[in-house]
Simulated assay, not measured.
Amino acid sequence: MSGRLENKVAIITGGARGIGYGIVSLFVSEGAKVVIGDIDSKASVLEGQFGSECLAFKKADVTKEDDIQALVEFAVERFGRLDVMVNNAGALGDQTSLIELDADGFTRTMTLLARSAALGHKHAARQMIKQGSGGSVVSVSSIAGIEAGWSAASYDAAKAAVINLARSASYELAPRGIRSNVVAPGLILTPIIGTACGIPPEQLDEFTECLIRPYGKLIPIGKPGRPKDIAEAVLFFASDASEHVTGQTLSVDGGLTSMTGFDIGGVVAEALSEFKERVGETEDKKVGWLPKHNG
């Protein structure tokens, strides 16, 4: 299937690397005209890679409302309209523990991850309402916004806010024909972890490959996700295939959020073993129930 975004104009923030780059690549291949908003100068290089259907807007800093507004105006000036807004730009933000929480770090993290998505909705929706043809806003959150334990409190809170923002946006914007949905990635092979660990830029790809095996051990499906997996989910929400879907969050995580985080069957089996020893179970006196488990 191809051409799923034919004649649509899309903005993708944070489109120069990782998940954002995967979204840009897929959108262009599906017929979209794409504007990349990123603080990374690499965004300009992508213009040459994807041709005239892909433009970069200088250095767009999504923590600044003026940059977000200018990004939307740029897309409309160059391509005449806006149909899809993808709020993807982000970083791990403040990773301090809750009891050591830095107030300024928390504010910066919320500004980068949650406020930017809210302002992306604001300025994209204004343009879409002006056009009178509706549109789609897709925000990239994280499974950290759904379950605790995947990151620090600041990041978790910001990503959870993105999910609820889409619900609020749907309630307000659906009557205008504007949909808002969220994709929540799990453990995806991108440079973000290496960057947070201080890995030199020239070694990020090598480090990222080293995550394949340990990630695979954690994920029920047995392997980590890649940017294209997230891009396909974003594409679904951006395309007309989801025209009756809004206010929803799709986890793309290989099954991570389907787990409780521990082997309940194994825990019960251990307790039953101890119980049998206590009551002196014999062959003709057995406990009748034992859950299946992976232990």
Rank of each mutant, 00 (worst) to 15 (best):
S242D: 10
E270G: 06
I143L: 01
T190S: 11
A125P: 03
L26C: 04
Y215L: 02
S258R: 15
P291T: 06
K130D: 05
H123E: 05
I39R: 13
D253T: 07
R213G: 08
S242E: 10
P227A: 14
R167C: 02
S52D: 05
P214H: 11
H121V: 09
E53H: 03
R226D: 13
A153S: 11
L46M: 07
I99Q: 14
G261D: 10
E53Y: 06
T282H: 05
T109S: 03
L235W: 15
G254E: 09
S2K: 10
G288W: 15
R176C: 14
G198C: 00
A125G: 04
K223V: 08
R167S: 06
N88P: 06
S29T: 12
K58W: 03
V35P: 09
N181G: 00
A160W: 08
I68D: 09
R108H: 03
N181A: 01
S139P: 08
A184H: 06
K285W: 15
L204T: 12
L112P: 00
S141F: 08
D156L: 05
E283D: 15
I99E: 13
T246V: 07
Q203K: 13
Q69S: 07
L101R: 09
F74M: 00
G3S: 07
I230N: 15
Q248I: 09
T111L: 04
K223D: 07
E53I: 01
V62M: 09
G255R: 12
R108P: 00
A174Y: 15
E243Q: 15
F237C: 10
E100R: 09
D38G: 07
I99N: 11
G20I: 08
G48T: 04
A114V: 00
G90R: 01
S141I: 07
V72M: 01
V76T: 11
V245G: 02
I11T: 12
A16Y: 14
S41F: 03
R108D: 05
G280C: 04
E232I: 13
R213Y: 14
A166D: 08
A158L: 05
L250C: 06
G225D: 14
S168Q: 14
A148T: 05
F275A: 02
D67H: 13
I193N: 14
R4T: 04
D67I: 04
I11M: 10
G135C: 09
I39Y: 07
L165V: 04
A174D: 11
K33E: 15
V279Y: 12
T257P: 11
G266P: 03
L82Q: 14
G194F: 13
K58M: 06
T260N: 13
S242K: 13
V34N: 09
I230S: 15
P200K: 03
Y21W: 13
H121N: 10
C210P: 01
T109G: 05
S239Q: 12
A184L: 08
G265F: 07
F57I: 02
G18W: 10
Q69N: 09
A148P: 02
E283V: 12
G37F: 06
A43V: 07
